[in-house]
Design a protein around this nucleic acid. Structure first.
Lengths: 342, 342
DNA sequence: AGCGGCTTTCAAAGCGCTTTGGCTCCCAAA
DNA sequence: TTTGGGAGCCAAAGCGCTTTGAAAGCCGCT
């Protein structure tokens, strides 16, 4: 059942039927109802491809998800981010098209999106410092919104980010207030913008309190349980181990806890752990009461915001870039306590 | 730059240019080269929408990912599965389109896929017992492959599944061999086919050894860290707690370990833990040496296989259904040991 | 010279929609 | 009675590709 058949049945032109179904004003209410009725009765659904060709709009948003060639890690926050974004897309009739590529083919993936013309815009995931995807997309003229920011890029662009520096500054201050001085940071890879900002926040808080930042208490790497475990283990073996540790992910915090307990120590008493919590659906930080003290910000909500922002930009391409800065909430759980005497 | 412009430049008809670029035989090698050259020089890329309309093939695969309305959980294995499938799709020029829906709108999502005609086939995730999506898709005539199986569906269909029953039977036998008798099962939701089969495998092994299956040692629910922790906690509080536990996911096993260690017990000595391990990229079970003893099968590889199978079916719709049964490997880590004396 | 049979190329008709630029009524205003 | 204008509808021209059916060119043969 296509438009022609339907309009033949109705004894109307394709024009009128199309306009009736798409809510154009130049069609009488009576006809509109009759058309809508017939469309339902005959189970008519417009052919998406034809519509896309005719309008020139793809009605789809692209996401490029890199697989790190060395580590084979699909960042687990993608799942939740995408769940949030997908919610908005489907509500607006947009499709979400995903491309999974080795990270050295990422640029090619964006170019392919552009030249195939099968999407109207993209979301940039995991921006790095001075991320060169931004100018690539600018040059292609593809609308985009960045999930995060890219330090070093001066031209304005649209983004949705959580205030990582502030969150880690506050978290660090919280630990300092508890008397900790040897505070460790188990961070993400610092070529990633979010990790860079987190370290800056951490350092700022330390400096403001005249507390030395110890290089041997800073780790930067993949945010997995295993890496968190390994990093914590190494730090616990130091002559002066940390009395508190900040981790960049709940998974990392779980690894750190395991290392702590392996040593027969107790988290929250012997060593404090404070983590960033993305509120991933499948990895909650306890129920009503948090287990880990954490700086919390929902990545799913960030997905929703990114999607909304992007759809807006697609609708109104001439609007100036729109930016959203989210503040993380500090929630207190059982993983932190006053610094023990030494 | 479109086909018409390109063929005008070349002084050829659109037909010839199209055929040249698509590798049809009725075009001379000389012309083909000339066309290919010009296409590159002028940066010509065919318009995907037009191509799709003309051929009637959407060149895209749909995935419907439900969000449980009660629990807000996006199953973390999706990420890895999709990474595997996406690899195959992009290699074959297919797009992957994702729809995220509340699970009571899942059926509508499949119908939408069908009536919008924007995909050529779908993958069914997380099949339940007697899953009614299968007959829905059959009736719509939409090619599909199931990741998993659906007990109770008798008509043949294409699937890729791991031998869950066998894996859990072997795992259970492994624990029985170590002298355990009070073995607990922390399973997924048993309306899910995989969880049902795992329980069957578990029970079979127990029955074959004349070991009673204790109802109070069986838990079925979401496979999160928190649920694993809670379930293990409850079981440890029983008059006769288990000496070993099987969990359906690494996350659940991590929760169980936490409960065990909270009680001051040691995993592998006081209580054995054996888990299923999907080899998720971001949640590895240790490095070279596994931490948890586990039945291991890569969900990413399953994604690849599903994708290949589906693309095959799309190409050759008349082939009989194709099925693939994967066997999990039992790897021995540090989480299991002989049953302690009581 | 005429012919059949290749190979190579082409014009034109789709695919199913949107949108432009009319056209026809009908009614109120002049 | 004419006229201007709005309401409601339509035919046809796209959108950029594929594919059908036919034609043109070339070859060796008889």
């Amino acid at each position: 059942m296509n438009l022609k058949e339907l309009s033949d049945i109705l004894g109307l032109s394709q024009t009128t039927v199309s306009r009736a179904l798409n809510g154009y004003p130049e069609v009488s209410e009576a006809t509109r109802r009759r058309v809508a009725e017939a469309a339902r009765a005959h189970n008519y659904h417009p052919n998406t491809q034809a519509k896309r060709l005719a309008t020139g709009r793809a009605m789809a948003i692209g996401h490029v998800i890199p697989i790190s060639t060395q580590h084979e890690i699909v960042n687990p926050v993608f799942a939740d981010f995408i769940a949030g974004a997908g919610e908005i897309y489907s509500r607006s009739g947009y499709d979400m098209v995903l491309t999974i590529v080795p990270d050295d083919e990422e640029e090619a993936a964006y170019r392919a999106f552009h030249s195939k013309r099968n999407i109207d815009g993209v979301i940039i995931h995991g921006p790095k410092l001075k991320d060169n995807r931004l100018k690539l997309l600018d040059s292609l003229g593809l609308p985009y919104v960045v999930h995060g920011r890219s330090s070093g890029i001066l031209d304005p662009y649209s983004w949705v980010d959580v205030n990582n520096a502030r969150a880690f500054e506050r978290a660090t201050t919280f630990l300092l207030d508890l008397g900790h001085r040897d505070i460790a940071l188990i961070n993400g890879i610092e070529t990633m913008d979010f990790a860079y900002r987190r370290r800056k926040g951490f350092e700022r808080a330390m400096v403001l309190r005249n507390t030395p930042v110890r290089d041997d208490l800073i780790y930067s790497g993949e945010m997995t349980e295993g890496q968190g475990y390994a990093a914590m283990n190494r730090m616990l073996a130091l002559p002066v181990p940390p009395s508190a540790v900040l981790t960049s992910s709940l998974l990392g915090a779980m690894g750190a806890r395991r290392a702590i307990e392996d040593k027969g120590l107790q988290m929250g008493r012997d060593i404090s752990v404070l983590t960033f919590d993305d509120e991933l659906g499948y990895l909650s930080n306890g129920g009503d009461e948090p287990i880990f003290t954490a700086a919390r910000s929902s990545v799913r909500e960030a997905g929703r915001l990114c999607a909304r922002t992007l759809l807006n930009r697609i609708k109104e391409p001439d609007l100036p870039p729109e930016t959203t800065l989210l503040e993380a909430v500090l929630v207190v759980g059982h993983s932190t306590g006053p610094a023990p005497f030494r």
